[in-house]
Amino acid sequence: MVKEIERAGIPVVHMCTVVPISLTVGANRIVPTIAIPYPLGNPSLDAGDEKALRRKLVEQALAALETEVEGQTVFEN
C-alpha cells in the first residue's frame, strides 16, 4: 500500500513495528513504532504519558515527511 501511494506522487511515511517487513514492501520513509498490537501506544503507561508517547512518534513521522530522502530511510528514535 505504501508503494502505491508513493507511486501516485504523495509522500508517505510508514509507521510500523517490524521494520524489515516495511523495507521489503518498499517503504521509503519508515518510523519504527512500539509493538505490533499497539504501534502508537503503550497500555502500561497512564493515559497522559501514553498520549505524549504517541505525540512524539507522530512528530517523528511528520519530521520524516519534511525530510528529503535518497532511498529507503529508517528514522530511528
Binding site: M1, V2, K3, E4, I5, R7, A8, G9, I10, P11, V12, V13, H14, M15, C16, T17, I21, S22, A27, T33, I36, P37, P39, L40, V58, A61, L62, L65
Partner: peptide
C-alpha cells in the same frame, strides 16, 4: 488486493489535494 486498494485510495487522495500520508501498520 492491497495493491489494488491502495491504487484506488491514492487516486482519491490526489483528487482531494492531500499533501502527505501517514500509513500505520500492526
Amino acid at each position: 488486493s492491497s495493491k489494488a486498494f491502495a491504487a484506488e485510495i491514492a487516486k482519491e487522495l490526489v483528487a482531494d489535494g492531500v499533501n502527505a500520508v501517514i500509513l500505520t501498520s500492526t
